[in-house]
Design a binder for these strands. Sequence first.
RNA 1: GAGCCGCUAGCUCAGUCGGUAGAGCACCUGACUUUUAAUCAGGUGGUCGUUGGUUCGAUCCCAACGCGGCUCACCA
Length: 492
Amino acid sequence: MEELSELLLQRRRKVDALWEAGVNPYPNDFKPQHTSAEVIAAYGDKEQFDAGDEQYVVAGRILARRSFGKAAFIQLQDRKGRIQVYVKKDDIGAEAFEAFESFDIGDIVGIEGFPFRTKTGELSLHAKQVRLLVKSLHPLPEKFHGLTDLETRYRQRYVDLIVNPESRDVFIKRSRIVNLIRGFMAGRDFLEVETPMMQPIPGGAAARPFVTHHNALDMQLFLRIAPELYLKRLVVGGLERVFEINRNFRNEGISVRHNPEFTMMEFYQAYATYEELMDFTEELFCHVAQEVLGTLDFNCQGNGISFKRPWKRLTVREAILEYGDIDAMQLNDRDLALAYARSLGLDLSQDIGYGKLIMEIFEEVAEHKLIQPTFITAYPTEVSPLSRKNDHDPDIVDRFELIIGGREIANAFSELNDPVDQKERFLSQVAEKNKGDEEAHYMDEDYVRALEYGLPPTAGEGIGIDRLVMLLTDSASIRDVILFPQLRKETK
RNA sequence: GAGCCGCUAGCUCAGUCGGUAGAGCACCUGACUUUUAAUCAGGUGGUCGUUGGUUCGAUCCCAACGCGGCUCACCA
């Protein structure tokens, strides 16, 4: 039996007293007819209006209370915001007022009343009836500082959402962003689909998967690290434009930019190229920013960011030469480039592939400096086993990553649709895996078979939704845009 | 996985050069019928993250552990 603090006992005694008095502390027959926002929309700009103009029926949680003996103000919060309610003994009756006096901050109440403006000018509801809808057994965090402890905010997100309006706003914006993306895709005739989250072969990305087991099939399954290979199978099947917004799972470290499950939009468009997707991405991002923020210029973590088009486009090499301290001749020479990488403090093995080496250097010297939206192109074939080789240079692929705020936000390429080439690339990945690279791609024979049937020339892209939301909500950590971020098990 | 920092009342935080703790808000009692972090008076509330060690005595010093934060590693 848990020892309860005096505060918690007081609340429980109030509930007991209600039951004893024949009052259900958890009724389910009150129907709010309005939201706080509707009252404000109707009367927010009116100076004078007569008492009893119109009756409003609202429900919400008590967030604050200022009592004066025979009258009180409470602040009520519902899903649309907050509104002040004035409760006067003479108006609701002595008996109801006595019950009202036992209400606590945190309780959920139903109010019927009419709008008026107080002496100090605040639009409020003047209560005619007040009713307890839910007795809360926990005190809410302090009104001035709110809840700031990050662990509690993540573990008890419900409390965070009650008392921190900024937190609530982030998740409202997140929902709007996802809806806008859906609308944009639908407007371009993309079909939203759902592909397996549990896959026998985890494909489509280089990452360590979570492993699980299906009892009835007695079969090992992996939580997906990407939907890519399934979505492209659909394009083979003739669904020429598909997209999916859903979770990926990667069994990797947790940081301010990484959560083990994160949300990705992936889409594939037949007969498109990666270059067209750059234009597409600019349009999509500008559409979303304009609708959500009302502007293309905004601030994120101290950086002014502008979505004004066109966005900068650089090859990996160009970015290294621009931001690193190395010249083209050195960069073209594998040994000199390796020496340079090591001089930067990178711990690289002597037999690292040249393509991987280039990417290591890029990430070390350039990526974090790319604050404004920048498309990085011409990735090494070696690190892009699902991308189409460039027609003029087989060492690079037709691929871009979009970097904003120093972070990778999107990854796209013209798809490799030559089944023979694809099979060879899988085999070289398997060789890497056998050498100990746990993140190398798995061989997927059925995917190769699908390509043998014929994948139209296609371009595809993945957009990290969490990171996009971070950008547009000026959030420092991915945990601030995920409702229930992964944490260790809570200890008592 | 490594380093650094943190963990004290429901919340936000002080503090104890080692002698078992305070404030504000919240809560309780009383006053107050237009307040805005309402006000005034009085009060309740703590195994100071856990477990060991040192000590006459530990919330404080030491160690291990737990949880969290940051940085790094990891992360096409």
